[in-house]
Computed example of a mutant assay.
Amino acid sequence: MPSFDIVSEVDQQEVLNAVDNANRELQTRFDFRGITAEFALKDKVVTLTAEAEFQLQQMVEIFLTKAVKRGIDIRSFKEGSVSFSGKTCSNALNLLQGIETEMAKKLVKLIKDSKAKVQASIQGEQVRVTGKKRDDLQEVIALVRGAELEQAFQFTNFRD
């Protein structure tokens, strides 16, 4: 029986490449000359550090632009709150990996409400969809891509 998995994963190497590219752009931008500002990646969190809050907003845009160019969906990042310490302020972009139980339940409900002839089941941090026909599975993929959900999804392990 054909099946596939709905997952939410981001390639760590691509995120690291986006961080490096964003740091490189900071060094060449005129409005960041002589200012302490940097991007850092540690444990699925991209930390942005700058001297002013408006610079952080510019840095978020720079990083998200670089991430999109690397093929990373911007819905894979969740922006934290700005924190101030001394002369610097920082912000964290958390990387969303895996599908949480509540989001998985929303996905299963969405698939069941569509009346597609498939079965969806939650398996850890992924959702497995099985059906008799490949066309039914492709309809589910189109449905999930078209749905306005707060997270980016990938479709893996397609078996016929």
Rank of each mutant, 00 (worst) to 15 (best):
N21C: 06
N23I: 08
R24L: 04
R24Q: 02
R24M: 07
E25C: 02
E25N: 08
R29L: 14
F30R: 08
F30G: 03
D31A: 05
F32L: 13
F32Q: 06
R33A: 11
I35R: 15
T36G: 06
A37Q: 09
A37S: 15
E38L: 09
F39T: 03
A40H: 08
A40Y: 01
K42V: 06
K42I: 01
K42H: 09
D43I: 02
D43L: 03
K44R: 11
T47L: 02
L48S: 00
T49Q: 10
T49R: 12
E51C: 07
E51Y: 13
A52M: 09
L56F: 03
L56N: 05
Q58V: 04
M59P: 06
M59H: 02
M59I: 12
E61T: 12
E61L: 10
I62C: 09
T65A: 15
T65V: 01
T65N: 14
A67M: 07
K69P: 00
K69Q: 15
R70S: 11
R70D: 11
R70H: 12
D73E: 11
I74K: 12
I74S: 08
I74H: 09
R75M: 10
F77Q: 02
K78V: 13
K78M: 11
E79M: 13
S81P: 08
V82F: 07
V82L: 07
K87T: 14
T88C: 08
T88I: 10
A92R: 13
A92V: 08
L96I: 12
G98H: 07
E100N: 15
E100C: 02
E100A: 08
T101M: 07
T101K: 15
E102F: 14
E102P: 03
M103L: 12
A104K: 06
K106Q: 15
I111G: 06
I111W: 06
K112F: 12
S114E: 14
K115L: 10
K117H: 11
K117M: 10
Q119I: 15
A120C: 11
A120K: 11
S121L: 13
I122F: 09
E125W: 00
E125F: 01
Q126F: 14
Q126D: 09
R128S: 12
V129N: 07
T130Y: 02
G131F: 08
K132M: 14
K133S: 15
D135I: 10
D136R: 04
E139K: 10
E139Y: 07
V140R: 01
I141D: 02
I141H: 00
L143P: 00
V144H: 00
R145T: 00
R145A: 01
G146D: 05
A147D: 08
A147T: 00
E148L: 05
L149P: 03
E150T: 03
Q151D: 00
